[in-house]
Structure formats: structure tokens, C-alpha cells
Design a protein around this nucleic acid. Structure first.
Lengths: 255, 255
DNA sequence: ACAGCTCAATTAGTATGACAATAACACCGT
DNA sequence: ACGGTGTTATTGTCATACTAATTGAGCTGT
């Protein structure tokens, strides 16, 4: 119907741009996003059979090739499964690949609930605490120096976007210093998502909050530099839960 | 070449069966696996342009439809990116979706190195420690009872496969009790992968090791039942690192 | 009336060939 | 030397077949 229409990808666009993703404007990506959003939002419920090829063909006005490639992409992300004579079924949520950038973006596009953000923050705590501890044991002096420098840049940030970028960079440095590719991959994803959601509630306009945030990040960097895994754990937990509390508090106040 | 041939998916098959995946034997999945393995193994290096459509068409002897759907699936998993006139490029590893069941399976198919397994175990520690702590705070009495019952079944296991299944079930119960869908999703994936790798080094044939393993799992369940998040953390860390140490030790001993 | 079988209908899977859009590169005019 | 322009290779899209798999209805034999 409104295929050529509004194309309102608000938070999805933000996440997409943060992740360095090329928002290619090809047909199959349009269909993909529309179907992905419909599934994640529950308009196509779990276990439900979605319309047959020919009906979707009509609805989107694209060729079978395009439709099928979009469906294959959804299948690759674990959202659907196609079987002959049955149709294409929406898989239960526990089969979805929640750590896929697109799937996450679809959740955010729909205006994620606080419980969703909390779950994500909990994952972040688990992963990054461990990453900080590993970094304390493994990182080279120049890695630690880069972290300290990054904290200084955070302290000097003047806009929320600036602050968010340096914050992101800091956590990325820690993840990289952990020497664990999974840590780097997952924390990049989660941070990207949460940053998109939390940039609004930045501490840059509140000098006291800014000082606290910068201070706790400095504690992380110094603990890592000193090889103190235990202190690094504690400081990282503080940093993340503080950030979440601040954002969640503001969310509940505003909406 | 040997498209119709041996189809030797050893550890991949194990992971596939554990994950309840239907190993559909359609053409596009054959092409997908062959290309996926080639990329993960580095036969198509990061940043490299892989052969054009027409060349791959010849090589695999399939239609363009099939080839393109396989490529779209790889693109959905972040392994490749196609651009007109440029070709299809293998993306850098940090863009790969390492938490995809297929991608993990390809790594295991190639005989994962100890460092790879260690990285996975580290992720598991981070995630499951947090899951155990959350479970301690949130779970209902009947959840804790189910965990205790599961520990009993572990203690009574007689074959490595039995033990692995109950072990898996235990950690699944913890993840579910945490109330965090991401925890459940990621721990399911990681456990599945590590179980496939570690079933060999099961403690069932060593009564002393079995007692230790069962004991530490019982400590987890009891801490969760008592709402003691701190104790749950400690016990979970012990459980996972013990398991990894045992498996890694055996791997290095055997070759 | 029942059990089992066969066959038709439906749906996804595969094949093929054509054309459109894109972008690197060589070419040409200035 | 430079800037615009056309060529061309490569992916993107379309349309139309045909194949394979699987369900379910209807048929058949007992």
C-alpha cells in the first residue's frame, strides 16, 4: 500500500547510523523491515502462519525474488521458518536471535519498555564486568593510557552526543583490551542500543552527575592499569548501574 | 566439486541436533554451509571480494535463485556485504554475528582452538553469574525446587550424554528464572556450543570429580533458593570455571 | 463401516532469461 | 593536468515457468 510512503525509521535510523550500517535503500530491505517490525511488534504473533507468498506479493507489490530474499533474511535471524504445504510460520521468541543488530533495532523502533532496557542493562553488566576484569589481567600499558585519555575527553564533553560517543569509545576500549572477541562483539551491540535509548538522559547538563560518572569511569581505567581485577569489577558495576538508574528514572518521570 | 559427496558435518551436526534445528537438506542450505565454512575458515579472507555470481554459479552448479538466497542469508548474519559493480565482500570479523547458531557451528566444524573455547567460557561466566544473582532475587520457590531436582538427576547420571543433558537443563532453569530473555537466549547458545565440545570430558567416569561438580551445582541451587545473590555468584563462577578447566586440561593432554 | 491407499491441490523450492540500477574505470575534450 | 562522460562489469529486480514436498480428501477393497 504505502510502500513509497513516509518511511519513518526514527530510532531505527539512529541505531543504524551508530552501527555503521549502510541503510541501503533497496527493495528487499524495505520488505524486510516492514515484515520484521510486524513480527517483533506481534502483529504477526508467534506460531502464526503469515500470508502466503502470493498474498504478500500483492501486498508489497514486489517480485517474488525480492519477497523471498526478505523472508530468507528473516529466517536467517531465526524469526520465521518456512515449510512446504504449511506456509511460513513465526517462530517462538526464544528462537529469535536477539543479538542481531536488525532485530534489536526493530525492538527499539517500537519504543522499548523499561523492562526491555533493564534486561539489556543486566546483560551489559554481566559482560562488561567480566571484560573489565580480563582487561585488568591482560591489557598493555598503552591500552590503559588510552582509556585514561578517553575519560578526560568524557569530562570535557559539552553536548550529550559528544559524551555518548566518548562513553561508547571507552567501553569499546575495555572490551578490546579484554582480548575476547565475543566480549567486543556483544558489548558493541548492547552499548549501541542503549546509547541510542539513553543519549537523551545525558549527565552533561548536570555538573554533579557528570563528575560522578567521569569519576567512576576513571576508577575503572585506573584499576585496569593497576591490574586490579576485583576493583575493576566493582567500578564497572557502579558505572553501568548508575547509568541505567539515571536513564530509567528520567524515563519514568517523563513518560 | 564434491557437492553430492560425503557431507561430513561432524560437530556441526551435533550442534545442530542439540539446538533442535531441522537440518533441511535443500540446495540453498548446502551452498550456505559451504560458503559459510569457507569464510569462517579464512579460505575467503576478511575484506576479500569473493567470486562473482556467474563464477559461483558454475562452481556450485545451482540456479541463481539458490545462490542469491544463500548469499542473502550470509549477509543477514553479517559475514558479507554485496555492492553493485564492486562485488560481494567478506566483512571484517567484528561485524560478524558471533552469536548466531550457524556461525558458531561453522567455528566448531573447523575444530575450535582452546582460545576460542576459553573466550566462550568467559562469556558464559559473565552471563550466568549475573543470571544466578538475578534468579536468587526473583525466582519462585517452585523454580528453586526444580533446580534441586535437576541436581539430583545430575548426580544419578550414568552416561556422559545423560550428564550433559541434565547439566544443560540446570543452567537453562537458572537462566529462565532470571526473568531476562537475553540471558536465556545467550546462555542457551553458549551452553549448546560448549556442551558439544565438552561432552567428551564428562566427570561421570570419575566419582570424585562427579561429586565435586554436583556439589557446586547444589550450592548454586541452594543459594538461589535462599535468595543469596552473592553466594549464587560465587558458586556459579566455580561451576563454570571448574568445567572449563577440566575440559581444557583434557584437551591439552590428548592433543 | 472401517482401514488403508491413491491422487489432487496447495505451498514452498528451483530454474531460467531478461532487463534495471549502480559505480569503478577508461576515455575524451577542454 | 583536469573534469566531465560514456562504457562496462556486477549486483538488483522482474516475470514465468516447472519441481518437490506434504496434507487432506476421496476412493477402494475388505
Amino acid at each position: 500500500m504505502d510502500r513509497s510512503g513516509g518511511r519513518a525509521r526514527h530510532s531505527g535510523d539512529l541505531i543504524a547510523s551508530l552501527s555503521g550500517r549502510n541503510l541501503a535503500r533497496n527493495l528487499h530491505s524495505d520488505v524486510l523491515w516492514e515484515l520484521g517490525l510486524a513480527i517483533v511488534s506481534g502483529r504477526f504473533a508467534e506460531g502464526e502462519i503469515l500470508p502466503s507468498d502470493s498474498e504478500l506479493l500483492d501486498r508489497f507489490g514486489v517480485s517474488r525474488t525480492v519477497l523471498r530474499e526478505a523472508l530468507k533474511t528473516l529466517a536467517a535471524k531465526g524469526l520465521i521458518e518456512a515449510r512446504a504445504r504449511i506456509g511460513t510460520r513465526v517462530l517462538p521468541r526464544n528462537r529469535w536471535n536477539l543479538f542481531d543488530a536488525d532485530v534489536l533495532a526493530w525492538f527499539f523502533e517500537l519504543g522499548p519498555e523499561v523492562s526491555f532496557l533493564r534486561s539489556l542493562a543486566e546483560v551489559r553488566i554481566g559482560i562488561e564486568i567480566e571484560a573489565a576484569a580480563l582487561a585488568a589481567e591482560r591489557c598493555r600499558p598503552e591500552d590503559a593510557a588510552a582509556m585514561i585519555a578517553c575519560v578526560d575527553k568524557m569530562a570535557g564533553s559539552e553536548t550529550p552526543a559528544d559524551f555518548a560517543r566518548h562513553d561508547l569509545e571507552f567501553h569499546h576500549l575495555v572490551a578490546k583490551a579484554s582480548g575476547n572477541p565475543f566480549m567486543a562483539s556483544i558489548s558493541a551491540l548492547v552499548e549501541m542500543a542503549l546509547t541510542a535509548a539513553f543519549t537523551i538522559s545525558s549527565p552533561v547538563n548536570d555538573p554533579a552527575a557528570l563528575a560522578v560518572t567521569v569519576g567512576v569511569h576513571r576508577r575503572i581505567a585506573e584499576a585496569i592499569r593497576d591490574g586490579d581485577a576485583h576493583a575493576a569489577r566493582l567500578a564497572m558495576r557502579d558505572a553501568i548501574s548508575q547509568g541505567f538508574d539515571r536513564a530509567a528514572g528520567r524515563m519514568e518521570k517523563e513518560g
